[in-house]
Amino acid sequence: MHDFRLDRRSFLAAATAGLAGTVAGCAEPRADSSIEGSSSYAINQGNLADGSAFTDLYNAIIESVTQVRVFGIRTDTGAAGRGQGSGFLYDDRHVVTNDHVIANGTAADLQYITGDWTSTTLVGRDYYSDLAVLEVDHVPDSATPLSLTDKRPVVGQQVAAVGNPYGLEGTMSTGIVSGVNRRLASQERRFPFPNVVQTDAAVNPGNSGGPLVDLNGRVVGVVNATIGDNIGFAISAALAERVVPALIEDGEYEHAYMGVDLRPVDRLVAEANDLSEATGVMVTAVVDGSAADGVLRPASGTVQRRSESIPVGGDVILAFDGEPIPDRHALSTYLALETSPGDTIAVRLRRDGRTITRDLTLGARPSV
């Protein structure tokens, strides 16, 4: 096996913070488990049930989905670590998976449903979108790349998650898109994942990095996490469409950065600041030297409302380049999908009872 070469970025330079309790990713092999599973190709193909449209979908894409086996030394404990997740063929040389699946390893092998194994080289990774790209040494002739959908998902849309929960290769679970444009946060991450797709398709440890696909086999999202029963999440195809090509080309991706802390304008914030509507987001703090420094005004203080500390005096962001920004979800999504570092956006805001517009030139997020 080739080394998991780190020729573009030091693979362990910035150890990814664990997402314990939230990620459905790099599952440790369970010594106490008696569950075993192998490729459907090992089963006698005679006398099979009729199946369904999902059976056809499974057969169309399963050879493009891989199991990711990670090896090496954990950076947090120094102990030897093993784990596994999922991935999918993006083009004829590259497999997409989650950053957190490969973050603590120094080598990774992939196994296709055909039983073929291949070694890999890390091409690029992005902590902020939890995406990573591996270059593979071998692709079976029967495997074809999966395309990212160019359509925004809608609630109620049927989807399927394909991957390797608990190391059980060749697994499909089905459901619907149960929410869109989510903002997935954790205590370990300063910046939440934007534009996340929510699904009720079952995802479990080992599913992370695998595709969430529509009925045409197009990737709606890259499975990332599960929080509880009947709810899971995936990094959207729209974000992956921006990040993955940059990882292949440059080994990294730069996210736009304002340098502000924000608070949604709910009824209490609106009342405390004499605002006519509970909409937009208030700037509560500005990072020194950031893009917003000297352009946007942070809150000047707080007042108590119903035993809660409410910011007052800060700019309320209403729109970017004419696009309404009613909440933090809209703000995060706009920055993630419509802007890049160096872009100048027109920020319409409410300040001192007046609606004004200020131009803001975006920076790049600081390194982890």
Rank of each mutant, 00 (worst) to 15 (best):
I102E: 01
I102S: 07
A103W: 11
A103N: 07
N104T: 10
G105M: 12
G105V: 10
G105H: 12
G105R: 13
T106A: 10
T106S: 15
A107K: 14
A108M: 13
D109R: 15
Q111S: 13
Y112C: 03
T114N: 04
T114H: 03
G115E: 03
D116H: 09
D116T: 04
D116C: 05
T118I: 07
T118W: 07
T118D: 00
S119E: 03
S119I: 02
T120D: 01
L122R: 12
L122C: 01
L122W: 05
G124T: 04
R125H: 10
Y128M: 02
S129F: 04
S129P: 10
S129H: 02
D130T: 00
D130W: 08
L131F: 10
L131A: 03
A132Y: 11
L134S: 04
V136P: 12
D137T: 13
D137Y: 08
V139I: 15
D141T: 05
S142N: 10
S142L: 08
T144F: 01
S147L: 14
S147Q: 14
L148G: 03
L148Y: 07
T149A: 12
D150P: 02
K151I: 01
K151Q: 11
K151G: 00
R152C: 00
P153E: 00
P153A: 04
V154E: 11
V155E: 06
G156A: 10
Q158V: 09
Q158R: 14
V159R: 09
V159S: 05
V159Y: 06
V159I: 13
V162L: 14
V162Y: 07
G163Y: 00
N164A: 08
N164R: 07
N164V: 09
P165L: 10
P165T: 05
P165S: 06
P165W: 09
G167V: 08
G167F: 11
L168M: 14
E169M: 15
E169P: 03
E169V: 15
G170I: 11
G170A: 11
G170F: 13
